[in-house]
Amino acid sequence: MTLARITIALTLLFTASTSTATAAGNKSQGVWKNPSGSVHVRAEPCGKFMCGVVVWANDKAIADAKKGSNKPLVGSSLFRDFKVVKDGVWRGRVFVPDIGKTFSGTITVLDENRLEGKGCLLGGIGCRSQIWTRISA
């Protein structure tokens, strides 16, 4: 994935909750879309952590993901081992299928319908952020 997709993935990370989640963390449960609407991720518990699983992606996102990974994009866990570091802020790992790499990232709950994901490639270089939006049930 491109750096922009890494940022998208980072935002998705924040979408699941854990048993130790705070009230702000509970706001992260549900399905979220990236700014372009090309990927939808479902936040869900994975043990004592939070994870984000791709539940839908458009054709371009699927094709981009095939460039760096032989795994299908839909159904993959892009966000792994996210835990609360402070109220409304989570930290964990993001897998970026287009390049087959995993990065660390943070997600911040802005409100019930918006999350901000941030991530950097290496040593604070190439940092990006994106706002993700909740998809209504």
Rank of each mutant, 00 (worst) to 15 (best):
F79Q: 09
V84N: 00
G68H: 13
G119A: 05
S104G: 11
W56F: 12
C51Q: 14
G47Q: 08
H40V: 03
V41P: 01
F103V: 13
W32Q: 05
R5L: 09
A21M: 08
T7D: 10
D111R: 00
S17H: 11
A21E: 12
F103C: 15
Q130V: 10
A24G: 12
P72H: 00
G124F: 11
I99G: 05
V54E: 03
T108Y: 11
W32S: 03
T108L: 03
V41N: 01
R5G: 14
T22W: 00
F79D: 09
P45W: 04
A21S: 15
C51E: 14
E112M: 03
G37K: 06
C51F: 00
P97G: 06
K86G: 08
D59Y: 05
L3A: 07
Q29T: 13
G124M: 10
V74K: 05
T11V: 06
P97K: 05
G124L: 11
K71G: 13
W132V: 13
I6N: 11
T7E: 07
M50Q: 11
R91S: 08
N113I: 09
G47K: 11
L73N: 04
L3C: 03
N70D: 15
G88C: 08
I135S: 00
V96M: 06
G92C: 00
A4S: 12
A24V: 03
G52H: 02
I107H: 02
F95D: 12
S129E: 04
T18A: 15
G52E: 07
R134V: 04
A23P: 14
G92T: 00
E112F: 05
S77L: 10
D98G: 14
T20Q: 13
L110T: 11
S38F: 02
L10H: 14
L10A: 12
T133C: 13
R91L: 06
M50K: 02
K48L: 07
A63N: 10
S36V: 07
S36T: 02
T2A: 10
R128C: 13
G37V: 10
C127H: 01
I8T: 10
D64V: 15
V55G: 02
R114I: 12
G123F: 15
N70F: 13
A57K: 02
P35W: 09
S36M: 04
V53Y: 00
N58I: 02
M50E: 05
G105W: 01
F103L: 14
R114G: 02
G75Y: 05
W132C: 07
R80K: 08
D81A: 10
V41H: 01
R93V: 03
S104K: 15
R134K: 15
E116P: 04
C127D: 04
V85R: 05
A43E: 09
V54K: 03
G37A: 06
L121D: 09
S17I: 02
T15H: 02
K118A: 11
Q130R: 05
C51Y: 01
R42W: 07
V39G: 15
K71Y: 13
P72F: 01
W56P: 08
D111A: 00
I62L: 07
A61L: 12
D98E: 07
F95R: 04
